[in-house]
Every structure is written in structure tokens, then in C-alpha cells.
Design a protein around this nucleic acid. Structure first.
Lengths: 243, 243
DNA sequence: CGCGTGCCTTGACTTTGATCAAACCGCGCG
DNA sequence: CGCGCGGTTTGATCAAAGTCAAGGCACGCG
């Protein structure tokens, strides 16, 4: 089974696209074994360094991708440089915009990211004779729509400290599907810089920093090394996120 | 062809659900003639007064609806009463959430609204043997997703006056698909109260009011009777919306 | 080792928009 | 007609977040 490798910084992780299907419940889950094999032949595994653009203005809109690991940020930008992160995507999310060529959004790697990418045309063709695929895509978009609207409430109506707590809560509940389910303490690495967090929350880096230290002083979180976060009580954090 | 009538304030507009299909390009456009007839039999036409809840906490989540006329606001609310409008819907938008029972959103009529409503189960069944329907739903969700993300940029990164201008621009471009295409002046009635506008923009009514009078003084808009808006130059308004 | 660089924090001050309070305006009604 | 009412405007003051500026800290490199 042939799998091309086009790793951006010449890594060589031996993963088939089938892996996306096997390990996650991504969009490819709807495909038959045969279709998967076809898709695999066209698939390219990429390792992407933080900050590199995956989709959008400059890079190919000619392909879709499944996120295998890492965090991807979807960004919108105004002419004068102001920007807003309009969504975060985690494995096993699907990356790309069906039907429309582009929607003014760029997708960049926030952390190191591994994606399995394949030609847009190929999946578009498969959609036609596999309705189940379209169903998966619909579920994915509805999920993203729910998340976007949740975040609109955060952006429009929460205070700076509620925003920061909401962000931490979002990361805590998305990055480690299993590790944190215990009612006790949970840990994770921040996938975003302060500047990214500010762009996600509609704040400045200074405000983000101040609110983080406030949460630290209130013992809602602990931060080591500027990246590693410990949350003694997720419930406590959730409280801070909405009052 | 039987059509039940269940008009909330006993109006009696004689419209079939087919009308939704004939007059608009809504989700029903994907159905065959036979399916449409079946759907018509189950359809109910409703006229809804401003402020009445169409979907959400208290009313039936057991039905979907197509908007025939009017403006519907999608609202999210926090425990302490703060609320945010996370989307506006116009004819011929589809109203309802496939697959998931509910997502913490309520849909209320902003203006007087006419909808054609039908049982959730019925459409869910039709989805199974009409992939084209699912395709329409996917397109609708992607459109809503694009709009939600556009609005996130507005909420997170624009100033109060840019927000108000963005709102007026959005209404101007959505409410009158034809009337305003001339490069000259265009008019419309505000479908939202100041309080709604504030909830849509993440502001207070006072700030909305002040920014509206500012836009009036700058001759970007004219307002008569507190509702009727005149925009001499849409391009000028668009400028105000992003700087 | 010392230095430069990038990222983060902290402090002093300013600005934007929120809050509080009063007045206004159109409208329906006794 | 006067009155009350909801929605809106306007003004005075306040607070939250932004801006500007300095300093800290970790890390890599000569």
C-alpha cells in the first residue's frame, strides 16, 4: 500500500491514513474498506511546526486533512491587522471547507501538529456516492457551530477573568479526553502562547497575563514553566468561567 | 391536500408548505414532489408575534420549521441573566437542530414571523432516503458557521461604533435582497429593539444608542421614527464597520 | 561566561464602554 | 385632555480593560 511522505521538516512517521480511521472517529469513519484504500494511496502525512499555515491564503486549498495530533487555530484577520481566533481544532477533527473555495479563514498549527492530508477532489468525489460521509461532515459542522456559538457568549458577555477561566476550561476538557475525568487534579500543557490566548478571547496579552496571575493567586490553577498547568478542581474552574 | 392550521394568534394565512419550496430555496428544495406532498400533510403554518419563543427551553423541540418571513433571533443565556444573541435568521432559513435534542439555544421571533413547521421525525426519516436533503442541511450549517465566525471577529475585536455599523450593514444586506442593490440610497426597518441590538453586539443599550446618534451626526445613516433606517451609501457604512 | 532575543509579567496611566440617573417621546387609554 | 408606560436618548461618573513602558526570566549562542 503506497503512502507518499511529504513531511514539512523531513520527519518520517510511518502512519497510514487508515490510522486516522482506526484511532479516531473522524470523518473517514464513514468510508468503506475499499474507499479507504483508495484514499490512502493519495494520502500524505505531514508534521507541521507551530506557527505554520495549514490552510488559507497562501497554502493549498486543494486538500482536506484529518488532525492526528496537536492543536490547530482558525484565525480571521482584519485589514489593519487586528485578528481573532474563531476556533480551535483537536484530533480527530476534520480540516477544510467543503463546497466553498475559501471563507476568509486561515488555519495554523498552534502546537506541533500531525495531519493526514488528501486531495479535495478525491473526497468530494467520494461524497457523491457515500451519503454517510456527508452525514459525518454535517455532524462535524454542527459541532463546530455549537462551539462557535458558545464562544460568542464568552466573547460578548463575559469579563476578562471569566474569559480566561473559560479558555482554560475549554483546553482542560478538550486536550486530555481521559486523563482528567477523575474528580481530582488534572494537568496539561497550554497549547497556545499568551498572544494566541488574547486573540482567542478578544483581549490583550497584558490582560490575559494579569488574569492568569489572579487565578493563580486565588489558587484556582497552578502554572509551572509558563506552559504546564495544573487544575486542582475542574468544578472550581468552571465556576470561575461563568461568574 | 390537507394542511392543518395552528396559528398562534388565530390568523389564517392559506399557505402550503410547498410555498416554502416554491418561493424560496430552503432545505425542502431537495425533496421530490411526492415527499413534498407527504410533508405538506404534516405541515403547520404559524404566525408568531415578536418576542414569542419558537424553539428552545419550553416549546416543542419535536419540530423543524422553515422561515417564510420575518427575523428570528437565536439567543444564549447565562445563569445570572446575561444573554447574547448568537445568530439572526431570515427567510428562507431552516430552523432546528438535526440529531441533537437541544443545544442551549432558544429561538424567538424578533419581528412578526411566519414559519412553516413540520414534525422532526418526519424530516429525519426523509433524510435517510434522500441524501440530497442532508447536503442542503450541510450547506445551511456551513453558511451559519461562516456567519458565526464572522461575528466572532466583530464581538472580539471591533469597537462599539464599528460593531453598530457592522450590525446595520448585516441587516441592510440580509433584509432586502433586491431593494438595496442600487449603488444609491437604501431603506429598511430595524427588526430588532435597542436591547436586542445590544445583546447581539455584546454592548449595553446606552452604548448602542450613543453610537447610533454618532452615526447619524456623521451622516452615515438617517433614522426616522426610531425604526426606519436610511443608508445613503452602503459603501460608507461598510467602511465604518471596520474602521 | 556574558549577551541578545523572545516571551511573559508588572506597574502607571489613559480610554472605552458600563453604570446610574434623569429626561424625553410617541402612544394608548381613562 | 392629562396620565402612565415602554422604549429610547442624554448626561455625569465609574470601573474594566487597553496602552505604554520597564523589567524579569529562560534559553541559545558566540
Amino acid at each position: 500500500m503506497s503512502v507518499k511522505r511529504q513531511d514539512i521538516h523531513n520527519s518520517d512517521i510511518p502512519v497510514l491514513c487508515r490510522a486516522c480511521e482506526a484511532r479516531h472517529k473522524g470523518v473517514c469513519g464513514a468510508l468503506t474498506a475499499e474507499q479507504l484504500i483508495d484514499l490512502n494511496k493519495q494520502s500524505v502525512l505531514k508534521r507541521v511546526e507551530p506557527g505554520v499555515e495549514l490552510l488559507g491564503e497562501t497554502r493549498q486549498t486543494e486538500s482536506y486533512a484529518n488532525i492526528i495530533s496537536g492543536v490547530v487555530k482558525l484565525t480571521k484577520m482584519m485589514a489593519d491587522g487586528r485578528q481573532q481566533i474563531v476556533g480551535l481544532q483537536f484530533a480527530p477533527d476534520f480540516l477544510g471547507r467543503p463546497f466553498r473555495p475559501d471563507s476568509g479563514i486561515t488555519a495554523d498549527a498552534a502546537t506541533e501538529v500531525n495531519v493526514c492530508s488528501f486531495p479535495k477532489k478525491m473526497l468530494d468525489r467520494m461524497i457523491k456516492d457515500t451519503p454517510e460521509l456527508e452525514h459525518k461532515l454535517l455532524e462535524q459542522s454542527l459541532k463546530e457551530l455549537d462551539e462557535a456559538r458558545d464562544w460568542m457568549l464568552t466573547l460578548g458577555r463575559k469579563t476578562a477573568s471569566e474569559k480566561v477561566a473559560s479558555f482554560l476550561y475549554l483546553i482542560a476538557t478538550h486536550i486530555n479526553p481521559d486523563a482528567g475525568t477523575v474528580e481530582g487534579s488534572m494537568r496539561f500543557d497550554l497549547p497556545l502562547t499568551r498572544s494566541d490566548i488574547a486573540d482567542f478571547l478578544g483581549l490583550t496579552i497584558e490582560t490575559v497575563s494579569r488574569q492568569l496571575t489572579k487565578l493563580r493567586k486565588d489558587e484556582v490553577i497552578l502554572i509551572h514553566n509558563n506552559r504546564h498547568v495544573e487544575v486542582p478542581s475542574l468544578a472550581r474552574l468552571a465556576e470561575c468561567a461563568s461568574r
